[in-house]
Amino acid sequence: MVTANIKLKLRKVQQQGQQGRQLDIGKLKCQNINKEFVLELRNRFGALADSTDEDPDIHTKWETIKNTYVEAATKILGYRDKKNKEWLTPGTWQKIEQRKQLKAKILNNESLRLQKQVQEAYKTKDKEVKKSARNDKRAFVEMLACKAEGAARRGEMGVVYTINKHLCGKNTSQSAPIKDKDGNNLLTESEQAVRWVQHFREVLNCPEPEHPANPTPADNIGLLNINTSPPT
């Protein structure tokens, strides 16, 4: 006969949805997409201006404006793929799409003569893609270097450190959790705001010390014999 102690443990529920996904705002660098996005926003805000809702509170206004921007960006820009390289410009992505189309033509074409013609075009387009990608990455690194140089000149070493980690591919920085006095994590923004208020009240409104420091100047210290003449 075998006896054992069984310990039950709750299974972690994975949250479903689009958490952590970022909008592909890099597409706004393309003039055509930028104009399309601005036009979509104008149409949506024009429809909101014609609505019959009068004098909503400030929170309702903010939620409406935020949802309008998010919906327009989701429709026009879409979400960014994690595999995308952020330094690639829209022009390079267009060349990549053209290369994909040529690759599909090679695979779907049964004529050997047409395949050779498309293969030559594919090789030329592949060289253009690689050259454009190299130029984009070089420009991206130069931009980050200039930004880091300016931050170092202003004494913002935190920005320099972040850019250095970004160039090295170490982008796993996470903000430290905010805890209450008992050591429990605060998950909501309202709880975190209340904790910050408590923290600064305790730090800035601390009582004066019972025995303040009152150092007395020393009387027996003479002048130091320091040679201040120019070097010879």
Rank of each mutant, 00 (worst) to 15 (best):
T124M: 13
K75I: 03
D81V: 01
A72M: 06
N109S: 14
R80D: 01
Q101N: 08
T124I: 13
V129N: 04
E128Y: 02
L102D: 08
R80L: 12
K147C: 07
D126F: 03
K125Q: 15
D57G: 15
W87V: 02
H59A: 15
Q101I: 04
W62S: 15
N43R: 12
R138D: 06
S111M: 03
L88P: 03
V141T: 10
N108A: 10
D81W: 06
Q98I: 02
Y79H: 13
K29N: 13
K127W: 13
C30E: 13
P90M: 05
F37V: 04
T68E: 02
N84E: 10
I65V: 15
E110V: 07
R154Y: 00
F140H: 12
T89Q: 08
A72D: 01
M143T: 09
N32F: 05
I25Q: 01
T92M: 01
R154G: 01
E63T: 15
E63N: 14
D136H: 11
A139G: 07
A72S: 14
R134P: 03
V38D: 11
Y69D: 07
E128C: 01
R42I: 09
A49Q: 13
K123D: 06
K61R: 12
E86P: 06
H59T: 15
F45R: 09
K130N: 07
N84Q: 13
V118L: 12
E71N: 14
F45E: 00
Q101S: 13
F37I: 04
W93L: 12
R134N: 09
K131P: 00
D53N: 11
S111H: 04
R113C: 00
S132P: 03
N43I: 11
K147S: 08
E63G: 03
K125S: 14
C146S: 13
E54A: 15
R138Q: 11
K130H: 06
Y79D: 09
A151T: 09
